[in-house]
Design a protein around this nucleic acid. Structure first.
Lengths: 264, 264
DNA sequence: CGTAATTTTGATCTTCTTCAATCCTCGTGG
DNA sequence: CCACGAGGATTGAAGAAGATCAAAATTACG
């Protein structure tokens, strides 16, 4: 039913026929492999069991072991972990098309929490359904693994970011990344601004900095004409300069996959 | 556990294994799935192409795309990345039994470097050979994916460590982790000490701290009777206290895998 | 031995933290 | 429609953890 102009492995171009509420998972996986209409239909089918989630709801709690994976269809979620001292590290963000964590399918419980940030739409996909899908469509399985590997690369880039850059660069890099990812998942406005439903505490726990320091760094960034951030909406005024400051390179978000080795 | 007497143990040569010369990959994968003798033999077989590597040699360079994966059979290697400013972030360490990076098999080039730290023995496994092995022994494929997922969990734990803990805790946590990992791969001495061939610069680039600050933190740790570290050998004098300081919990290094879902 | 690499030390500086108060913003109920 | 309250943002002042710079002391090693 959903007709999709057979997406050749197109790179993150936004504005591609997103009139028809395309399944964000299709969009995402379509960046890794080319999906036929059969596959697209199959993906649509497994996303049937959807649920609306209010902001700040725990989707999956640490230590739990659900028998399904959660797909963010719409909205914004994040992965995080608390330390005994009460400190929180945010481990990553989930945007439309992102699957909560593939590790579910193999480990017995998750070692961190996943919660919503905004009003979201989440599809619950039973593990078995997913495995059946993989069995029937190896291309989908491959794309899914590739997506998981990109997730890992993002994590690695975060480590670099938190470990080596100063506050100004950290924030810049984070904004660059989120901007690219949200645009790729079709969630950017016509003016290029994105909805970033994070308070400054979240930014602090993302970057390993303090709320107060985040606040001051943001002010500086605004002063310097780099960004505008208000009412949970981020506009990058000077993308090139921001990327230069951050040392940002979006290669890691859209890795090249040689078609030859398709044999996963 | 197992011990390697000489710097260059002869592994996987002919079929005649001495009792001691266990393939570290077998040891590692054996923690995830139970391997039969057929599988063990098959793993041994793919490790045939071994090579000795001197310290501080680049094993795989950023951007390169070798057609094989590198397995650390003996020794110590690390993954790292340089930033334009000249800063280096160490992204992880490879101990015997660790495979350089599974992403090879799917992405066209690596986004970071891998280099040796000590005299090492590295087995080169052609991607195709590995895929054939997977096809013939699904249990091995499953174990390999599980190992990759543990790698990801370690990365996540590093993010937490660098993002949220102070210098004292960071180092403590790192030492705890390495101690557990090296013991698991059979590389600890009878007295529980481990060989950690890192200079203080490496510790700095691991934790995102400064060489000078690492030095002072180490001194404090020695003072407090937590560790002894000299001549590249780490002895944890008070493991419990060290773990308490670090907030270390080794669960993430040995995740529980429910046997039921074995279907990867 | 002599040289280079590594560790250690000292002094100073700055980024970031901590604590605490104030100010918005916005939704709610009267 | 406005007062109220709460969460979030902002500001100020002071302190501390860690950075930087530069040199000296050890150690490793050919």
């Amino acid at each position: 039913m959903l007709q999709y102009a057979s997406p050749a492995p197109s790179l993150c171009k936004d504005g591609v026929d997103s009139e028809l509420a395309a399944n964000p998972l299709v969009t995402k996986l379509g960046r890794f492999v080319s999906l036929g209409s059969t596959e697209i239909a199959a993906i649509d089918r497994i996303c049937g069991d959807q649920k609306a989630i209010a902001p700040d709801q725990v989707i999956i709690a640490e230590g739990s072991c659900p028998d399904h994976l959660s797909l963010i269809v719409d909205g914004f979620a994040y992965r995080y972990k608390f330390l005994p001292g009460g400190r929180r590290q945010i481990l990553g963000y989930l945007v439309p098309g992102d699957l909560c964590d593939v590790r579910f399918s193999v480990f017995d419980r998750l070692d961190h929490n996943i919660a919503s940030l905004s009003d979201s739409q989440v599809a619950n996909i039973p593990v078995k359904t997913l495995l059946d899908l993989f069995a029937a469509h190896p291309a989908i399985e491959r794309a899914m693994w590739l997506a998981a590997l990109v997730d890992r690369t993002i994590l690695q880039e975060w480590l670099l970011n938190i470990g080596q850059r100063d506050a100004y660069q950290k924030l810049s890099h984070f904004f660059c990344e989120m901007s690219v990812r949200l645009k790729a998942s079709g969630c950017s406005d016509s003016d290029g601004s994105i909805e970033l439903p994070l308070d400054q505490t979240a930014l602090a726990d993302t970057t390993g900095l303090t709320l107060v320091h985040i606040n001051r760094t943001l002010q500086r960034m605004r002063c310097e004409g780099l960004i505008a951030l208000r009412r949970r909406r981020l506009t990058i005024s000077d993308p090139d300069r921001l990327a230069a400051i951050a040392g940002f390179n979006d290669d890691y978000l859209a890795p090249q996959v040689p078609p030859v080795r398709a044999s996963c």
